[in-house]
């Protein structure tokens, strides 16, 4: 799940060279797409021969289907400007390898990776779930530094040093375990160190 932000107007204006076709993707609009800002910006661009607004251009088959009737105008274009996440831009770029395909957005990650609704909870997809020792609060995402062995000591009044509006993840974990009467989980047995090499868990066998 991704969210996008428009690049600056100057950047986009500099990209629109020659005959320009614009492709807007509204597939993840309910997540985030600056529809009105993009509309306004596109009105002022020079050389625009066609604006195509469609959805789910990350799906190559759908993209082809949606662009079919615009084949001529795309073939005649010098530049294709894509307003979508990075996946959409690359799908278009792969479809028109010889064309200058430019991205007009920057893409950001979003906590939660299914559905439309961004979630408050977050999962780092680390492949070695730590939630069992932490009262169900993920240290990878709840701690700014993704520490595994307790807090860094940088929190002030329970708030993170990186963002004073964010609670210290490890203090949350400690309080949760305290509440569950599971503070023993905090007791040190061996250091926890992440395995970045092969995060995929193995299948269990019986």
């Amino acid at each position: 799940m991704l969210i996008t932000q428009l690049k600056s107007k100057e950047t986009i204006e500099a990209l629109a060279q020659g005959k320009t076709v614009i492709i807007n993707c509204h597939g993840c609009k309910e997540v985030y797409f600056a529809e009105h800002e993009a509309d306004e910006l596109q009105k002022d661009l020079n050389g625009v021969t066609q604006i195509i607004t469609t959805d789910y251009i990350c799906n190559p088959d759908n993209l082809k289907l949606q662009l079919k009737k615009h084949t001529d105008v795309i073939n005649a274009a010098d530049t294709i400007l894509v307003f979508s996440c990075g996946v959409g831009v690359q799908t278009v770029a792969a479809l028109f390898e010889g064309k200058k395909v430019y991205s007009c957005c920057d893409t950001y990650p979003l906590p939660g990776f299914q559905g439309v609704t961004p979630l408050n909870v977050d999962c780092g997809q680390c492949g070695e779930c730590y939630l069992n020792g932490t009262g169900g609060i993920c240290p990878i995402t709840a701690c700014s530094k993704s520490l595994l062995n307790g807090q860094c000591g940088g929190a002030k009044e329970g708030m993170c040093e990186v963002d004073k509006e964010m609670e210290c993840g490890w203090e949350r974990i400690y309080r949760k375990l305290e509440k569950l009467n599971k503070l023993d989980n905090m007791k040190y047995e061996a250091p926890k160190v992440r395995n970045y090499h092969n995060p995929n868990a193995e299948e269990p066998t019986i």
Binding site: G27, Y56, N62, G86, T91, Q125, L131
Partner: peptide, 30 residues
């Protein structure tokens, strides 16, 4: 107490809906 019986793994393609391969790292600076 709630316990995890599973591990979460990174799969390709959850960025964007088309379940292809991972194409975008969402770095915020395309």
């Amino acid at each position: 107490p709630v316990y995890a019986a599973s591990d979460t793994v990174i799969v390709d393609g959850h960025h964007g809906m088309a379940l292809t391969t991972t194409l975008c790292d969402a770095c915020g600076q395309c």
